[in-house]
Design a protein around this nucleic acid. Structure first.
Length: 686
RNA sequence: GCGCCCGUAGCUCAGCUGGAUAGAGCGCCGGACUUCGAAUCCGUAGGUCGCAGGUUCGAAUCCUGCCGGGCGUACCA
């Protein structure tokens, strides 16, 4: 049985020990119970009930506003309906009581002790093995001609977090990073080396690291050089054609440059915990005739038409339906000189991703992830830590079965929405409307530079730019914050903070902590905004470790950790193993803690921890990762509140102590699961 | 021009498929470390949810118009 990871969030596998959902299951059962009651007593079949979170814990754990809806058809007041339901409905096993609240909400109170016990077990149960449909996530996709910048970090952080979420939902996920190694941008850097630097291949090879930084400057230089004298663009044309031909020294140089830059990107991205499984390259799409195959099909299906005259004379174009009742537009797929546009190649690539092309690549191992580093693959057999590269010839290794996804996510910024629509329309016109529907443009807004950031970088702005609220990053102009620079800066600041605190730690330990803190700060910063918010990058905000930041979240877990560390080191009668035993006893005698759980502050902390599965569900449904970030932050806030208010280790009543410890552990596990999904590492201390 | 997105506290942003008194963080001001770690916590002040209509029992949320801003709309990607 193939389970979709996109339906309602129940990935339950009967007979397994995995408890795959906590709150969602209860919500669904309660909703069903209510629907039945409504059908029986009011004769109204409601398809789905809206479920809300009451504004205050005292009001209940769930709120159902259906009475307002029923009021019309029943011609009775919502309050009256809610009261009737609350008085007459039976309570399902997990519910303590139903209450009519406010002007007509029907609120639900769970049985707290049983809930707490299940929650604690749920958070300790292992996550499900991937068994659902195969999903391909393509992200990062940086032109391999310059260093990565903050915009690319947002892409990779979002893509990587999406991957983690989908895996948590039971999907089999394949991570692809497409390499446009034969495009204009690589050609431009080749032109830079040849015409501006006039360097030999050997000289280029001996350029010291960071090579991607070198190219960053060179690319900006070449762009300026073109601008000074437009006729110089002929060098780009010439170089591009030579690269596409694949023969001679120019393609070899382009290959060297692009792969060296790709390797730099892999290193940069690994620093923030991002990994890939396969790097499909444009050069193989061309040389393995993927495009020719797609082109033939597009012609056969009359998906594209040859323009005999008009402005697009000599081109092959596709008719793209206009949005919102606008007239259709013609998009050029093949230029009048016979070369294919990026979109054309993307259609071929997209077909391959779904296994619809009838062709596939060969692969060879390119790199290995090992011990927190990425190194070029030189020997040994490939494994799950291998990054594969597409090749034209078979490699001696057993090649993985990449592609053939059942669903595809393309993580690309919103400015490419139009082109993504063209690609999807291509699938549709080839008769693959099912795949077209399962091809998702996971879009997000750009990262721009705030005016403050520009002045900090010493960037002189034009009169026009100065009037704008923010300035777009531009590789062409060399305008931007390089990813490694930002990560380095974050690391330095983290180390300062760690040094100011952990005096007893070795330098190596302090560096490890600082590294985790810097990643936590960066990833949370990139993930906390909703996708369609333009991030106007600001150093002071990105470098903040206080308030709603990654380090705040890490700190709350570290506090919980330290309690258990102290407990473990305690040589008195009350240590870690006693707690575990007491904990079992506690569940067997629910009355002992029932009274303690009446405290609404403690209860809402537990409820928040339980909402994790709901948050994951919501996040995947809306593809809004900031939602999960906010959830984890709220949990951390509630935990800090609890931590501040209750003395745990010094509690003299053994029942209370056990109870508080279990709450701490519950919050800690909830935080750890959430942070893991966000790709935020947690140090043991900080 | 047309399309997409945005406009919520001084600043940066949340606000789930319409629901109870619009929330955080930062900043400001004032408190809390001989205590499980102060990268923390508590409190005060701060909002015509851009404007005007409409739909609804109910609108920051949906619809229409306007104002302001951003991005697309290339034989670039």
């Amino acid at each position: 049985m193939v389970l979709s990871c996109f339906g309602v969030g129940l990935v339950a596998r009967t007979g397994s020990l995995i408890i795959s959902s906590m709150l969602l299951k209860r919500i669904e059962e309660t909703e069903q119970h209510l629907r039945q009651f409504i059908a029986q007593h009011f004769g109204v079949e409601l398809k789905r009930l809206t479920v809300e979170t009451p504004p205050r814990t005292e009001f209940g754990d769930l709120a159902f506003p259906f009475s307002f809806e029923l009021a019309k058809t029943l011609r009775r007041s919502p309050r009256e309906i809610a009261l009737q339901v609350a008085e007459n409905i039976e309570t399902p096993p997990h519910v303590d009581r139903f209450v009519a609240a406010g002007n007509g909400h029907l609120n639900v109170f769970f049985k707290r002790v049983a809930f707490f016990r299940d929650l604690h077990r749920w958070l300790h149960s292992p996550s499900a093995e991937p068994s659902g449909e195969k999903v391909i996530v393509e992200h990062t996709n940086i032109n391999p001609n310059k260093a990565a910048h903050i915009g690319h970090l947002r892409n990779a952080a979002l893509g990587d977090t999406l991957v983690r979420l989908l895996r948590a939902r039971g999907c089999r996920v394949e991570v692809q990073n497409y390499i446009d190694n034969t495009g204009v941008q690589v050609a431009d850097v080749v032109v830079g080396f040849q015409n501006l630097r006039q360097m030999s291949f050997e000289e280029i090879q001996s350029i010291a690291e960071p090579f991607d930084y070198y190219c960053w400057d060179l690319y900006a230089e070449v762009s300026k050089w073109y601008q000074e004298e437009e006729s110089r663009l002929k060098f780009r044309e010439q170089t591009l054609q030579e690269i596409e031909s694949g023969e001679g020294p120019i393609p070899q140089l382009a290959e060297y440059i692009s792969m060296r830059v790709v390797f730099a990107h892999l290193k940069t991205m690994l620093r923030i915990g991002v990994r890939y499984e396969v790097l499909p390259r444009e050069s193989e799409i061309l040389s393995m005739k993927f495009w020719q195959e797609a082109f033939q099909r597009l012609k056969d299906k009359k998906a594209i038409t040859y323009q005999e005259n008009g402005p697009y004379q000599g081109c092959w174009t596709m008719q793209v339906p206009g949005t919102n009742g606008q007239p259709d537009e013609e998009k050029i797929i093949v230029r009048s000189n016979g070369t294919v546009t990026y979109v054309g190649k993307d259609i071929a690539y997209q077909l391959w991703k779904f296994g619809l092309l009838g062709k596939t690549f060969h692969y060879r191992p390119l790199c290995q992830y090992r011990g927190g580093e990425v190194t070029l693959h030189t020997h040994g057999s490939p494994n799950e830590d291998t990054v594969w590269l597409t090749t034209t010839e078979p490699s001696p290794h057993t090649e993985p079965d990449f592609g053939r996804g059942q669903r595809v996510f393309n993580v690309i910024d919103v400015r490419q929405s139009y082109l993504q629509r063209v690609v999807v329309e291509g699938l549709r016109r080839l008769g693959f409307s099912n795949e077209a529907d399962r091809s998702v443009h996971f879009s997000y807004e750009m990262v721009a530079l705030s005016p403050a950031c520009c002045s900090e970088l010493g960037i002189e702005l034009s009169e026009e730019d100065r009037r704008k609220p923010y300035v777009e990053v531009s590789g062409r102009k060399g305008l931007g914050v390089k990813a490694d620079d930002l990560i380095n800066k974050l690391f330095e600041k983290s180390l300062e903070e760690v040094n100011a605190r952990g005096k007893a730690l070795t330098l190596k330990q302090r560096k490890e902590i600082a590294q985790k803190v810097s990643i936590g700060a960066l990833r949370y910063f990139l993930l906390k905004y909703t996708r369609n918010t333009v991030i106007a990058f600001d150093f002071s905000e990105a470098l903040s470790f206080e308030g709603e930041t990654g380090p705040y979240l890490q700190y709350s877990v570290v506090r919980a950790h330290s309690i258990f560390r102290k407990l473990e080191a305690d040589d008195s009668e009350w240590n870690l193993s006693i707690w575990e035993k007491e904990c079992e006893r506690m569940w067997e005698q629910p009355n002992s803690i029932a009274e303690l759980l009446e405290d609404n502050e403690l209860w809402s902390l537990l409820l928040q921890a339980a909402r994790l599965d709901e948050a994951i569900d919501q996040t995947v449904a809306t593809l809004e990762i900031s939602h999960l970030a906010k959830h984890v932050f709220n949990l951390a806030q509630q935990f800090n509140l609890f931590y501040h208010k209750y003395r745990i280790l010094s509690e003299s009543d053994p029942i209370k102590k056990c109870f508080y410890l279990t709450i701490t552990d519950t919050a800690r596990q909830g935080l750890l699961k959430g942070l893991d999904l966000l790709g935020i590492p947690v140090p043991e201390r900080m």
